[in-house]
Amino acid sequence: MDAVTAFREQWNLPGIIDVHTHFMPKSVMDKVWTYFDSVGPLTGMTWPIAYRLEVDVRPDRLRSYGVKAFTSMIYPHKPNMAAWLNQWAVEFAARNPDCLHTSTFYPEPGALEYVTDALDAGTRVFKSHIQVGDYAPNDPLLDGVWGALEDAGTPIVIHCGSGPAPGRFTRPGPIAELLARYPRLRLIIAHMGMPEYADFLAIAERHDRVLLDTTMAFTDFISEAAPLLPSDLPRLLDLQDRILFGSDFPNIPYQYAHALEAVSRLDLGEDWVRAVCHGNGTRLFDL
C-alpha cells in the first residue's frame, strides 16, 4: 500500500480535494522547472522537482492517490499571456473532467473581457500570483476584474505572502486594502500566507469569505525558514471550515504523502484533517 492510500485509510477519507496543483502548457512548465533547477531568486534554495512527469501522466498520478478534484494553477508573468493560458486551460479541463477549470489574469487592458469570457466558459477557480507577476493587487487595471469576481463569487487562489522570498507587492497590507474595497471576494490565501501566517489568519478572521490553503506550509522543507508559531494553532482550529489542502504538485521537492502528513501532525484532530483534506473543498466547489 502506498503512503497516500495509507493516509486516506488512517483518516477515513473518501478522497482528497487538492486546490493547488500546477498544470500548464509544456513550454511554460519547462521554463518553470528550469527556474527551480537554477535556484532562482524567488526561491533562493535548492528545489528538486519530485514529479517531473509528462503533462498527461500527472493527472493519473493524482488519481492513483485518490485525489477526486484538482486544479490547473496557471499564472502570467507579463502582459498578453493570460488569455492564451486561459484558452489552454479550457482544453485541459475538457480532457480532464476532475480538474477544476482554472483561469488567471494580469493587470492589462482587456483583462475584464477575458476574465468575463473565462467565467462564461465555466471557470471554477482563478489563480493570481502577486509574487511572480510582480503586480499590485490594487492596480486600477484590475478594478473591473475584482468587481466581476466578487459578483460571481468565484474563488481566487492568490499567492500574496512574502515566502519563499518577498516581492514588491507581497505582504498582508495590500490584501487588506483590496478586501476593504471588495469585501465579498472569495480569496484563498495560498501557502497560508507564508511566512506572514498570523497576519493572514487575522485577515481571514475579519472576512468570513476568505480561506487559506496549506500548500507547503507545515512541511519539513519550509518549517525552518517559515515556522508556524504554536500560538497560532488554536486559530487554525477556529478556522477549520475555511482551510483547504493544497500540495503544489508536481513542483514539490518531497513526496506527495509528506504534504498530507504535515497537515495531520499538527495534531488538531480527525475532524480537522477530514475537513481540510476533503470536506471543505467538496463544499466550496459543490462536488
Rank of each mutant, 00 (worst) to 15 (best):
P14L: 05
M24V: 10
M24C: 07
P25N: 08
V39P: 01
T43K: 10
T43S: 10
G44K: 12
T46W: 07
P48C: 11
E54Y: 04
L62S: 08
R63W: 07
S64M: 00
V67T: 14
I74F: 07
P76F: 10
H77P: 00
W88R: 01
R95N: 14
H101G: 00
H101E: 05
T102L: 06
T102H: 08
Y106D: 02
G110I: 12
G110Q: 10
E113Q: 15
Y114I: 00
A118H: 04
A118D: 10
T123I: 04
R124M: 09
A136N: 15
V145W: 02
W146R: 05
L149F: 10
A152W: 00
G153Q: 07
I156E: 06
V157G: 02
V157D: 02
C160L: 06
G167I: 09
F169D: 04
E177V: 13
L179P: 06
Y182S: 08
L185A: 05
R186V: 12
R186P: 09
I188G: 06
E196A: 05
D199Q: 15
A202C: 04
H207G: 04
L212S: 13
L212K: 12
T215L: 03
A217F: 08
D220A: 14
F221N: 09
L229Y: 07
P230Y: 09
D232T: 13
L233C: 05
R235G: 00
Q240S: 14
P250Q: 02
N251K: 03
P253H: 02
Y256G: 00
Y256H: 15
H258S: 08
H258P: 04
V263E: 03
V263G: 03
L266G: 09
D267C: 14
V276K: 06
T282G: 03
F285Y: 01
